[in-house]
Structure formats: structure tokens, C-alpha cells
Design a protein around this nucleic acid. Structure first.
Lengths: 143, 143
DNA sequence: TCTTGCTCCTGTAGGGGCTATAGCTTGCAA
DNA sequence: TTGCAAGCTATAGCCCCTACAGGAGCAAGA
């Protein structure tokens, strides 16, 4: 049984964030000392670390909570977790694809500019944006 | 001079979002009709489209506003725009790198799981997280 | 014993970038 | 004239924190 500070240190989740997770029901509130202080056992720290790992992997809090629920149930529910994971993986791949397009656009945007001159091709390009590219079609169909 | 609805259509920025941009000072408020309705000229629609393009490229509103300021000033201020752009390009590349690590981790996480079985390696892996990987070191130093 | 300084508590406000609602007025076509 | 779409303002909500104010508890040193 450790304090919230120690739980924060061991789980890698900040104190304020732990309280926030409790307040919003992502994790259950731990026992309290007679003086009202939170006291965490190993499982609760584990749950916090689980949430952190999910967040590190880009899962939303809702997804993290749902995965924690699956993981906490007896007999890990593989199918559901796979589904959440696959969905998430697709989201990540879509984002990578979008960002790579963004990167290409930025490189293109800045390429012919000779820094220091008055007329910046980058700004001109941004200003020239045609109307016809809206709404943008989804170029990441290969996912 | 067109209505806000038409401006939204032409710029690709939603009506509520246009009003939000005006309210928060990202763009200036346009003229009003005698009845108090917003009326947009070509330049203002241009500015909205400029902001949208910046946002599409992942610039923050503050960056977009700053770029718009540079682009609107007489004699495009290339140096500053280049600096903002370079900074942003690095940000994009960092995000791509982070997401690729996330993707690799997700693939790794889900790889040995044979869907439908009771013990899901994905959840187990998330549960097993060691304490020693915190704080995580920055693995994207090659940018 | 008293004080110092750290940790903890609750509650609340703020951030960024929207999105949606409620309740009203205006414009236009049938 | 009626009816409906589109506009207006103001406000609240979303997600995921982060930070602050103003207290209370607790261990160690003077």
C-alpha cells in the first residue's frame, strides 16, 4: 500500500493525472487511509501502468478503459481486444499516410524558395490555393 | 460580397468554425449588412482558405495566423515564413517517426495472437509492462 | 514542543480547437 | 402570407490533461 506520489512514480502517471483518471472513472478509486489519503496496491499500480501503455500507443482513454476491462476479466477476451487493436492500427497507418503527404507538401512548398529574397514561394503557394481541391479526396486508400 | 454560408462553401471552413476564428481573432471580422449579417469579399474567403490549408498541413492556429500575417504584409517576408515552415516540417517528421514506432509496437503487440483463443497475448503484453521503461527515452533523434 | 517543508486533499479554471445547442431574427420563394 | 432556410449571439460541451488556490497531514530537525 503506497501513497499517490509513489504510485505516480511506479506507474509513470502523474499525480494530477491519476486523480483525473479516478474522477472520470477510467480507474476505480483506491482505498483511503484514516486521514483520507489514497492508498494503492500492486494491482492498482498495474492498472495505471496499463492505461499509460495504452495511451503511449495512442489509444483513447475510452479504448484504454475498455481494454483494461477486457484484461481484468477472467480469461482474457482476445477477440474484442484484437478488434480494438486492429481498428487502432488502421488509424495509426492512416495518420502516417496523411502526415507523409503533409511532409511532401511542405517540402514541395519550401523547395524553390531562396531564403532572404522578398517574394517567398512558400507564402505565394499557400495564398494561391485553388478552390477545386475541396473537399479533399481520401488519398490513403491503400490501407 | 457573399454570406457566411457561401464563404464556408468556398473556403472549406465550416460556418461555426468561421465564427470561432473571428471570435478568437484568427481572422478579422468582415463587414456587416444593415441587418447585421456577415459579408465576405474575395480576400476574406482567401484568408479563410489559407487558414484551412495551414490547418490541413498541421499548423497550429497561432502558426497559421502568423503565416497569414506574413503573407498579407507587402513584400512577402520569406525568412520568417521559412523559419516557421522549417520548424513545422521538423514537427511533421517527428510525428511520423513517433507514429511509425507506435505502428511497430502495435504490430508487435498483436502479432502472436491467434484470434479466438482465451489468453490474448496482446492484453498480456500490455499487462506485463515492466517498470524500467519509464521514463521512455526519445528514440527519434535522427531528425 | 514547535517549526519547517514536503506531500497530500478538494475544487475549480484554463488550454487548444473545435462542435453543438437554444432561442432569436432575417430573407426569400411559393 | 406563410413557411422554412439561413443567419445571429451566447453558452456549454468535447477530449485530455495541467495548474492553481487554499487547506490538512506528517516526518524530521532545532
Amino acid at each position: 500500500m503506497v501513497t499517490i506520489g509513489e504510485a505516480a512514480r511506479r506507474s509513470g502517471v502523474g499525480i494530477e493525472l491519476i486523480r483525473y483518471y479516478e474522477r472520470t472513472g477510467v480507474v476505480a478509486g483506491p482505498e483511503r487511509s484514516p486521514a483520507g489519503r489514497r492508498q494503492y496496491n500492486a494491482d492498482e499500480i498495474h492498472a495505471l501502468r496499463f492505461i499509460r501503455r495504452c495511451r503511449d500507443l495512442g489509444f483513447s482513454l475510452a479504448e484504454a478503459k475498455s481494454l483494461l476491462g477486457l484484461a481484468s476479466s477472467t480469461g482474457l477476451a482476445c477477440g474484442e481486444a484484437q478488434s480494438v487493436g486492429q481498428h487502432h492500427l488502421k488509424g495509426i497507418q492512416k495518420k502516417i499516410c496523411d502526415l507523409q503527404q503533409m511532409e511532401a507538401a511542405m517540402v514541395q512548398l519550401m523547395r524553390p524558395c531562396h531564403s532572404g529574397q522578398q517574394d517567398c514561394s512558400m507564402l505565394e503557394t499557400l495564398l494561391q490555393g485553388s478552390e477545386s481541391d475541396w473537399p479533399p479526396q481520401d488519398r490513403c486508400l491503400n490501407i
